[in-house]
């Protein structure tokens, strides 16, 4: 298995193994969360596991990542996050002080997001069978208002802030390279920002996604494929902090593919684009929001990037680790 990068390989794995085994109407859409209707109540239910190296990095740690990640999966599905579970897999000998630190940041993150951690589990495995600490969180949220239906041509594409900060922070925090940088992780709960956007635009909001593994490029490809539309974005329109850009250039990676943990992509109806942008910018987590492109009808299923020189590059879903294609 080499299925970690969040691109096409992961998708293939999911389709080939899990969907086949578990197939049911709720799983079928393969969204980040399932939408349930229980005794008349509409609920969203999601789970996610967190493995990150290092466990502590500028701007956060695996604890707030695990809370914010599940909060965000619920929030972008249009639900109000309510209750979380937390499961820990710890390597034998893992320092208790570190565990306390992680749990403390989970508590703070839950408070900030306004959710409660209501159940949990802990397993300890032999030394070498795990890398320190893994966390699984699951969450339920209440769906109180619907999203505005299918993504369609003419819709506007927004990102809620500068991209790539979490991924670059973690890469630099591994300490393999001696790079001075002020970049910190963008990990944050998006439920407040989502509520602000939905308050302003109601059903003008078609779809939201948090841009985690595989970055904004992967999210945009999913939007294009799911809705059978073209996603056309402007290279110059994406907000990227200069130090993130610099680190990406050095490492030879495209910020569009770098993970975020507190940024979302929102597709909104074209006629509320301005209101949506203003609403995002009115919230502290959306101060750097930008309109980056539009949904078009042709070519369906593709993400196109308009370059500074007026060219049109295909932003494809990566199959694995990016390898140069230049001969």
């Amino acid at each position: 298995l080499s299925h970690g990068a969040g691109g096409k390989a992961t998708q293939t794995l999911i389709q080939a193994v899990f969907l086949d085994a578990f197939r049911n109407p709720l799983l079928e859409p393969l969204d980040d969360g399932a939408r349930l209707s229980i005794d008349g109540a509409s609920l969203a239910f999601t789970t996610d596991s967190y493995v990150v190296s290092p466990l502590f990095f500028p701007g956060g740690d695996i604890g707030d990542l695990a809370v914010n990640g599940t909060v965000n999966d619920l929030a972008v599905s249009g639900a109000e996050p309510l209750h979380l579970s937390a499961g820990f897999i710890l390597e034998e000998g893992f320092p208790v002080a570190d565990l306390k630190r992680i749990v403390a940041s989970m508590r703070v993150a839950a408070e900030v997001a306004g959710v409660q951690i209501v159940t949990g589990d802990t397993k300890v495995v032999q030394r070498g069978k795990a890398d320190g600490c893994y966390i699984n969180t699951a969450g339920v949220g209440a769906i109180r208002r619907p999203l505005g239906g299918e993504v369609r041509p003419g819709d506007a594409i927004l990102v809620s802030g500068p991209i790539g900060e979490h991924g670059v922070t973690v890469m630099l925090a591994r300490g393999e390279l001696d790079i001075e940088s002020d970049v910190t992780s963008d990990t944050a709960p998006l439920n407040g920002l989502v509520a602000t956007l939905m308050d302003a635009c109601g059903e003008g909001v078609r779809r939201m996604r948090d841009a985690t593994r595989g970055g904004v490029a992967t999210i945009l490809n999913e939007v294009a494929a799911d809705a059978g539309v073209a996603v056309v974005v402007e290279e110059d329109a994406f907000p990227v902090r200069p130090d993130v850009r610099g680190a990406c250039e050095l490492l030879g990676i495209d910020p569009l593919y770098v993970a975020c943990e507190g940024r979302m992509v929102a597709i909104v109806s074209g006629d509320v684009a301005d209101e949506a942008l203003a609403a995002l910018r009115s919230h502290p987590l959306g101060a750097g929001a930008a309109l980056v492109g539009r949904i078009k009808d042709d070519p369906p299923g593709l993400v196109l990037l308009k370059t500074a020189f007026g060219g049109t590059r295909i932003v494809d879903l990566l199959v694995g680790d990016p390898l140069p294609r230049i001969c």
């Binding site: 390279l177 001696d178 030879g252 680790d321 001969c327």
Partner: peptide, 23 residues
């Protein structure tokens, strides 16, 4: 400005696929 970092990237295999390229 970037020489040492690029050398380190190669040494530690960070963002550095291997190649036997003549070019």
């Amino acid at each position: 400005a970037r020489w040492d970092t690029v050398v380190a990237m190669g040494d530690r295999g960070v963002g550095s696929p291997l190649t036997s390229s003549m070019g």
